[in-house]
C-alpha cells in the first residue's frame, strides 16, 4: 500500500474544494443574503436585517398569483408526468414491444433536444390549432419535459427488482392489471416517488417553455421574477427567489430520503 496523495496535493485539493463550493453555492447564498436586507436596493452584503421584503412578497397579489399558478401547474404536471412516466418505464423495462430501444430513445429525447426548440414548436403548434396559449399548453409542455426524469428514476429501481415476482403473481391467478397494481408498482415505488418530486421541481422552476407560452393569464413564479429582473429589480425578487431555493432544498432532501440522491444523479 502506498501513501494515497502527498501533503501538498492534499492542501491544494482542500483549497480547490472550498473554491468550487463557493463558486457553485455563492450566487445562491447571495440571493438569500439580499432577501434579508432592510434597505430599498439590491445590495450584498445586505444593509441591516429585516423581513420586510418577505412581507412585501407575501402580501403582493402579483407574486402570490404567480406562486399559485406555479403550484397548481406543478401539482397537475406531477400527477400526469408520474402516471405516464411510470407506465412507460414499466413497458420499456419489460421490453416486449417491438422496437423498445427506439421507443425509450424517443421518450428520453426531450432531455437531449434543446428545450428552446421544443418550446417554440409547441407555441407555433398551439397557436395554429388552439389559438391563445393557456394553462393547458403549459401543462402539456411541462409534462413532456418531466416525463423522462420519471422514466429514468423508475427504470433505475425496476432494473434491480425481481422480474419473476410479477410472473409468480400471474401464476397464482392475478390478472395482468392486478399484478401490475399489487406487484410491479409497489416494487418500483421509490423510483416513482423520486420521479414525482423531480417532476414537481422541474415544473415549478421551469422558465423556457413558460416564457414562450406565457400569456397575461398564465404567469408562473419564475416568469414573474424574470420580468421583474428585466424591468424593475428590487429586493422582493430576492425574497421570492430565496423562498424558491428553500423549496428546492426541501425537495432534494426528500428525494435523498426516498431514493438516495446518488442513485438519481449517477
Amino acid at each position: 500500500m502506498v501513501e494515497s496523495a502527498p501533503t501538498s496535493v492534499r492542501i491544494a485539493a482542500v483549497i480547490y474544494l472550498v473554491a468550487i463550493v463557493a463558486f457553485v453555492l455563492g450566487p445562491l447564498a447571495v440571493v438569500v443574503g439580499v432577501s434579508f436586507t432592510a434597505g430599498d436596493y439590491i445590495t450584498f452584503p445586505p444593509q441591516g436585517l429585516s423581513l420586510r421584503w418577505y412581507e412585501a412578497v407575501l402580501s403582493s397579489s402579483v407574486y402570490m398569483g404567480a406562486a399559485i399558478t406555479s403550484l397548481k401547474l406543478a401539482v397537475v404536471v406531477t400527477i400526469s408526468a408520474t402516471i405516464i412516466g411510470a407506465s412507460v418505464a414499466t413497458v420499456i423495462h419489460r421490453g416486449r414491444l417491438p422496437g423498445t430501444s427506439v421507443l425509450s430513445a424517443l421518450f428520453l429525447a426531450p432531455l437531449v433536444l434543446p428545450t428552446i426548440i421544443f418550446a417554440l414548436g409547441l407555441l407555433i403548434f398551439w397557436s395554429a390549432y388552439f389559438g391563445r396559449t393557456s394553462f393547458a399548453a403549459l401543462w402539456i409542455g411541462h409534462t413532456v419535459i418531466a416525463v423522462p426524469y420519471v422514466i429514468r428514476t423508475t427504470l433505475a429501481v425496476l432494473s434491480t427488482s425481481d422480474r419473476y415476482l410479477e410472473e409468480a403473481a400471474r401464476t397464482m391467478g392475478a390478472g395482468p392489471w392486478k399484478a401490475i397494481l399489487h406487484v410491479v408498482v409497489p416494487q418500483a415505488m421509490p423510483g416513482i416517488a423520486a420521479g414525482a418530486f423531480f417532476a414537481f421541481n422541474i415544473s415549478f422552476d421551469e422558465a423556457i417553455v413558460s416564457l414562450f407560452l406565457r400569456s397575461p393569464e398564465v404567469i408562473t413564479l419564475p416568469i414573474q421574477i424574470y420580468t421583474q429582473l428585466e424591468y424593475s429589480p428590487d429586493p422582493s425578487i430576492a425574497a421570492a427567489s430565496a423562498l424558491m431555493i428553500g423549496l428546492t432544498v426541501v425537495l432534494i432532501f426528500v428525494i435523498d430520503r426516498v431514493l438516495g440522491i446518488q442513485r438519481v444523479a449517477g
Binding site: 419564475p222 430576492a238 427567489s241 424558491m244
Partner: peptide
C-alpha cells in the same frame, strides 16, 4: 452542493450572478 444550483430555477441562479 452541485445538485442544488442544478435544481434551482435558472432565473434565481442568474439573479445571484447579477448581484455579484
Amino acid at each position: 452542493s452541485i445538485t442544488l444550483p442544478l435544481m434551482t430555477s435558472v432565473v434565481v441562479r442568474t439573479f445571484g450572478w447579477m448581484v455579484l
